[in-house]
Amino acid sequence: MRCQALHHSDQPLPEAAGQKRTALSEYLEQIVFPAERGNPAPTSPFASWKITWPKTARLLILCLALGWTAMLARAQGVEVTDNDVIQVAERMYCPVCENIPLDECQTTACQDWKEEIRAQLAAGRGPQEVIDSFVARFGDHVVGLPQDPLLRALAFIAPLLATATALGLGVITFRRFSRRPALSPNFGDAAGEQTDEVYRQRLEEDLRARR
């Protein structure tokens, strides 16, 4: 019950704008100052252009890149709302508390996870990709629907087999019913049954007479 001791964060979830800024600034840094960030020397065909192209051309490309990022950002729906986060969190489970959907859990750990979902969505990942990334890191028990093909097959096929077996048993029982001859021609001779059937018959006749 460690999760209960954790403090409930009073802070609302951070605004999506903050996340967007980070993503964009990182992107800019990579373009403008690749060397300063200590990235390995680029080996692509474009490796040489940084050195040979005049400064204006680099600026032009930077502008294009900016515009492109903005467009991409819009296309990817970078404006992540609380509801988008909920949509993903609903399908996941709290990592600390036992069997509580992530969506409902208010512990700091869960707030963190929801923040990460938001960040990943803001980075343009789809809900399934976000879930996959969590499953890759923490295993299948953080989602309500197993992602592992074997486990998923087991989750879905076994109940179907069970239903089929139950139905099979039902059919066998029914065949036993229908193979049997009625022992006495006037079935329903027992007193209890008779009242029931006669009563029912009277109802039927009554209704017919009315029409």
Partner: peptide
């Protein structure tokens, strides 16, 4: 492997 079976799986069948 630990698994959690959530509502979406149950609702399926």
């Amino acid at each position: 492997k630990e698994v959690t079976i959530g509502p979406e799986t149950f609702e399926f069948y």
